[in-house]
Amino acid sequence: MTALLEVEGLEVVYGHVIRAIQGISFSVGEGKIVGLVGLNGAGKTTTVRAISGFLPTENVRITDGRIRFAGQSIARLRPYQAARLGIAFVPERDKVFDTLTVRENLEVALTATTLRGDEPGRCRRYRSIKDILDLFEALARRADQLSVFLSGGERQMLAIGACLLTAPRLLIVDEASLGLAPIMRRQVLDMLAQLNREFGLTVLIVDQDVGGVLSIADHGYILENGRVVFAGSREHLLQHGDVKEFYLGQKEDRERGYRDVKQYRRVRRWH
């Protein structure tokens, strides 16, 4: 497996005080779907913001570690440079331009990224606004409306559609399912899986919904308190007793008491 994105020993400090990320390592193989999952405050969003070049602007520093994309170090790139390398990012909030129409939103993405030459590995299936509107029928019906009137699911579609127009090599989706009804959540995940299957698009999903993400991901990394606590293939994670109990809500045969859970948490925090 060749790794498209490699993160090694990443450490991020907020305002000189809080070590939000305490040495995370993971890799995303070309053409794979990888899930980065964990509870609120586990450090998922901070990790992907480090990858897309946003931390230095926000009183947050990467104090250690390496981030490599396609063999090139990208820790010092500015956000738009990361985007032009083919890292498309769907943020958690503020993912579309509310004051622009759906069509204009897509146009911004189309005009911002100019591809030079024939760069390998980029998903060029979607080249025009029409391609995206054909892909998402719900958007086609509202193409000339302001995006502020879109529903949560449509906003997610528009954000992903805009990313596809930048010919991404890696699509990072932060909180793919936040605020969506279960059925929409399923649709978004299925769509990502389909994009991966049909065009080999590499996807990094960051989410709290461990079960949902593991249903489509090839690999998963579970974060707690800024560390990776479980890692492995989907099968491995789905079989793992602790993952089952604490993230998927499935009970083991033997009941665990409150004391066991507390002990588990303690071990996880300091391991």
Partner: peptide, 8 residues
């Protein structure tokens, strides 16, 4: 922020 994320 979003503009930069789109490659602007």
């Amino acid at each position: 922020t979003l503009s930069a994320q789109r490659g602007l």
